[in-house]
């Protein structure tokens, strides 16, 4: 239709690739940007947290059990007299660690499956997608509980369980993008110069799927943290003594009426982390791939 317009649109769309414009667009999205800053703060806490905590998060102090918020203990202390704030800060590493590592593992497996499924099609695609459908039929948390029930409780198994249930969503999404990209002319051009299948998939199709993977990764980390917390809450995850946010919630169940700070602060930590990751994911999606809405 109007050439000038399509040209200018194309230019805008294609220039998104460059880093500086990406940063510019990103800064424009206030919510996403604030979420990003919050996430950076969390990562810093996860790294240096154990060294800056005011109290040792593990050592009980039976002289100061179940204290409310005070100048000394900003978020109070738990039933063993441990400082809640210190435990929260130390727990950042566990929660983020579980969230990020499990999703990375899930994303890796899901991406490979999605690429293979989408590129080869036919029975390969059908098999992989049917298995994904089966997994989709279970609620995520139920699937995770099942896996942990089989493998036994513990952090490693929680990571594996959460990774496992994020595989099908990554596989399906990457497959969709692969189907779209493999029909593009530059893939045909690549075939016409004699490129082998591996090269086409990993060097040419995979880069095209990176934006949607990044977006989904971000959002999925929130879900993973939530799932890991739920597992810990149910007593299937981190050991109750470790400063995991979910485990802290689980421990403080009995004091919900008497010491609200024990429930409130871990809950708030989980809530803010998941919220910021979701907002960050939304923002990234709008910039990187305006086409995928949910």
């Amino acid at each position: 239709m109007s050439e000038t317009m399509t040209v200018s649109k194309q230019q805008i769309a294609s220039k998104r690739g460059t880093l500086s414009t990406f940063w510019h667009d990103f800064r424009q999205r206030k919510v996403a940007f604030i979420s990003f800053l919050f996430f950076v703060l969390l990562v810093i806490l996860a790294v240096i947290g154990p060294y800056i905590v005011p109290f040792n998060p593990q050592t009980p102090d039976y002289n100061h059990v179940l204290q409310g918020m005070s100048q000394k203990h900003w978020a109070g202390t738990d039933e063993y007299g441990r400082d809640v704030l210190s435990r929260l800060i130390a727990g950042t590493r566990i929660s983020l660690g579980i969230g990020i590592s499990s999703v990375l593992i899930g994303a890796m497996a899901g991406t490979i499956l999605g690429l293979v499924s989408g590129y080869f099609g036919k029975w390969v695609d059908k098999t992989i997608m049917r298995i994904c459908d089966v997994l989709f039929a279970f609620p995520d948390i139920l699937l995770a509980i099942g896996i942990v029930a089989i493998l036994g409780p513990g952090l490693k198994n929680v990571i594996f369980a959460v990774a496992f249930f994020s595989v099908p969503s990554f596989a399906r999404m990457v497959r969709g993008k692969t189907l779209e990209v493999k029909e593009m002319l530059f893939i045909e051009a690549e075939k016409s110069i004699g490129a082998k299948t591996n090269r086409i998939i990993f060097r040419h199709i995979f880069p095209e799927t990176i934006p949607i993977i990044i977006v989904y990764l971000t959002m999925q980390v929130g879900t993973a943290i939530l799932a890991a917390a739920s597992l810990s809450f149910l007593g299937l995850g981190a050991s109750p003594s470790s400063p995991d946010w979910g485990a802290m919630l689980s421990m403080s169940r009995d004091y919900i009426g008497t010491a609200f700070n024990l429930v409130f602060f871990p809950g708030l930590a989980i809530f803010l982390t998941v919220l910021s990751l979701n907002n960050l994911g939304d923002g990234l999606r709008d910039i990187l791939d305006p086409k995928i809405k949910d």
């Binding site: 109007s2 050439e3 000038t4 317009m5 040209v7 649109k9």
Partner: peptide
């Protein structure tokens, strides 16, 4: 040629700017 503004000109007569 493309980008010379001929299409935009015609759209402006109809006052149709899709964009």
């Amino acid at each position: 040629e493309s980008g010379c503004g001929k299409s935009v000109t015609s759209l402006s007569i109809m006052r149709l700017f899709h964009d």
